[in-house]
Design a protein around this nucleic acid. Structure first.
Lengths: 221, 221
DNA sequence: AACCAATAAATTGTCGACAATCTAGATATC
DNA sequence: GATATCTAGATTGTCGACAATTTATTGGTT
């Protein structure tokens, strides 16, 4: 399910989307060098469009580039993950508070019934939330904040990085049902127009996610 | 005083910095079209480097680009300003809290003595804080947070936008001495390692700035 | 054998030209 | 006179080639 459409009009757009997906989903691993000529032959486009795509990836903090040397996929450190989730906590906590103020009733209802509809699915298969469901939920609340700069900031940069972490660290599994309940509580707070509570719950929700990943990280060492 | 150096190694870098300055400082006004050929003759570089510079400006939300049409300098709305300062409040509030945890004593001392040194200057000329002083203060606290992602996020994008607002709205003047005192209180909280208080004071400080600008805005209408 | 210098190969940065797309003006039609 | 269509101009998107810089290789010296 694609809930925020990035439509590629130009060739650079398509290349950028493809490259980003390959990196975020791990097909191009962390630390890999992005050779312009290699990629231009692979995607059958000019080096100019490859360069433009790489520039955009650099702006998203997905690749690092050194002048006259080249671009490499960023290697994600444990500290970097902590930093990223600190930012998410601040920004999405604010988003939840603003959503409680600004989100139209119709959007709240839509989000609420979306969660309701997934209730049975969650109870049965326990496979609900690792992916699209969680992302969808968070994105709808960001949009509900009605802060345009916040929306672009998160959907252009931070989310892709966060997903990249989860993929690279093999985070596909657990923490399913509790996250679902947390989501429900957040929606209820927004529905009650209780911004303060919504922020607290959202921050806590993101902290749980962070701790969950951090635990897995320490186990791997 | 330049306290965080962006050194331009390539020609695109230089063009990007120049273009950004001209836009942020108002030489190129809001809503202006950025013609690639025009700029390439003006700066005496190829269209390729102009395109790269424009792409970077787009990533900073300084220009908006439509495919096959062109790029225009963003026109700043009152709502946009509100949104921007909401984000600053969340992020820099967090930065202050983190700085109270992570900022080395040496950096705190340096910042503190910097403020002390400006005390007389403030009392006399009342011209202290409209520019570099304020920016320097905020940047040092961001750096003190030791959150690298936060540092790049703010210094690459948000600060330039915030400055652009102030320039376009003719915010050069007042709110000098009170801001100075606010800064001193924030530093004291950081020095005492009181993260909670530091965050509260920083948020309040940014709210004051926002209100100050918002008032001027309504007067202009 | 280890280290340094000079050269060769490869990669990125920049350029000018062509192709694709959009915008404006003129012409035609109702 | 207003609207729609077509054409001409201008602008952006894409391409391949050349220049500048970095990296790897070779050769020489201690």
């Amino acid at each position: 399910m694609v809930f925020f459409k990035e439509q590629a009009v130009t060739s650079s757009d398509k290349t950028y989307f493809q490259l980003r997906e390959e990196i975020v989903e791990g097909a191009i691993p962390a630390g890999a060098k992005l050779s312009e000529v290699e990629l231009s032959t692979k995607y059958e486009v000019s080096r100019a469009v490859i360069r433009e795509a790489i520039n955009r990836l650099e702006a998203c903090n997905i690749v690092e580039r050194k002048a006259n040397v080249g671009a490499r996929v960023v290697t994600l450190t444990e500290d970097g993950l902590l930093e990223l989730y600190q930012i998410r906590e601040a920004l999405e906590g604010m988003a939840a508070r603003l959503a409680a103020q600004n989100m139209p009733e119709a959007e709240i209802y839509e989000l609420s019934s979306l969660l309701e509809g997934q209730q049975d699915e969650v109870r049965q298969s326990h496979t609900y939330y690792q992916e699209a469901g969680d992302l969808d939920f968070h994105y709808r609340i960001i949009v509900g904040s009605k802060n345009q700069q916040l929306i672009t900031m998160l959907s252009n940069g931070i989310y892709h990085l966060a997903r990249m972490y989860r993929v690279q660290l093999g985070m596909t599994g657990p923490r399913v049902t509790t996250a679902y309940d947390e989501h429900k509580h957040i929606v209820r707070a927004i529905s009650n127009r209780d911004g303060e509570l919504a922020e607290i719950l959202m921050r806590r929700h993101i902290q749980y996610s962070k701790n969950n990943i951090a635990v897995k990280l320490t186990k791997m060492k």
